[in-house]
Design a protein around this nucleic acid. Structure first.
Length: 220
DNA sequence: TACCAGGTCCTCG
DNA sequence: CGAGGACATGGT
């Protein structure tokens, strides 16, 4: 049986601390105090929606564009025309849908102080991964985020469970209930998925290859 | 040129 | 339920 904590330790050794979530285009290594205010909290939430199935660079452009148009605030997004909003976030891809998602979230955000997971999941455009990203990175709540990289990496390691909930359970039952750990671990998984455990993985450079089902059979 | 990126919704069987 | 398609830009 693979040890989830060992996976974390190996990834941390290889890649170091990641400093998620990026705010103002900057990472904050080993500083888990973000967000420090409502403005940063809102930026993380908007980013978590805009980055759905989209690379961070494109998301970042959209966020910068929102800022330069002075629109990165709940009231502004709530009042702007959805088509204008779509043009401003165009770089993030799926911009028509995402504009609608931003407005739906914002409408909810303006009249709700407590954002529970169930309430988030009831909002158009927010599924499990986005809800957990918001809870973890904007609210420092220990919900483990499962994304496409997580599923791919776990599958290769030998965990064949398939659903979001099943993967999340594996992490949350194995790890200390610590938002800082969840924050760093998820960021490391993304890093690993991008750089090493890619669609065409580079197993001979992988820190996990000795404990990986796929890696062991894929080394020359 | 073709493929992919820190998903979610909708429809259909 | 679960699979399959729609949604879309920018980088390699």
């Amino acid at each position: 049986m693979l040890d989830i904590n060992e996976i974390y330790n190996l990834l941390l050794e290889k890649y170091g601390y990641q400093g998620w979530w990026p705010i103002n285009s900057k990472y904050h290594v080993k500083d888990y105090s973000f967000p420090k205010n409502k403005q940063q909290e809102f930026e993380i939430i908007i980013g978590s929606i805009l980055t759905q199935s989209t690379n961070w660079k494109n998301t970042e452009k959209a966020i910068k564009n929102l800022k330069s148009n002075k629109l990165l605030s709940p009231k502004k997004i709530n009042s702007i025309n959805v088509k204008k909003l779509a043009l401003i976030i165009k770089s993030s891809g799926y911009h028509n849908q995402k504009a609608k998602k931003l407005k739906e979230f914002t409408k909810f955000y303006l009249k709700n102080n407590k954002l529970t997971r169930d309430k988030l999941l009831g909002i158009y455009g927010i599924g499990k991964e986005t809800a957990d990203s918001i809870l973890l990175y904007a609210y420092k709540r220990p919900y483990f985020v499962v994304d496409a990289y997580t599923k791919r990496i776990m599958n290769r390691l030998g965990f064949k469970e398939g659903t979001y909930d099943e993967f999340q359970d594996i992490f949350m039952k194995s790890l200390d209930n610590d938002y800082k750990l969840f924050n760093e671990f998820h960021a490391l998984i993304v890093k690993h998925g991008k750089e090493t455990c890619k669609k065409n993985p580079i197993c001979n450079k992988c820190r996990l290859n000795k404990i990986c089902e796929y890696g062991k059979s894929n080394l020359s």
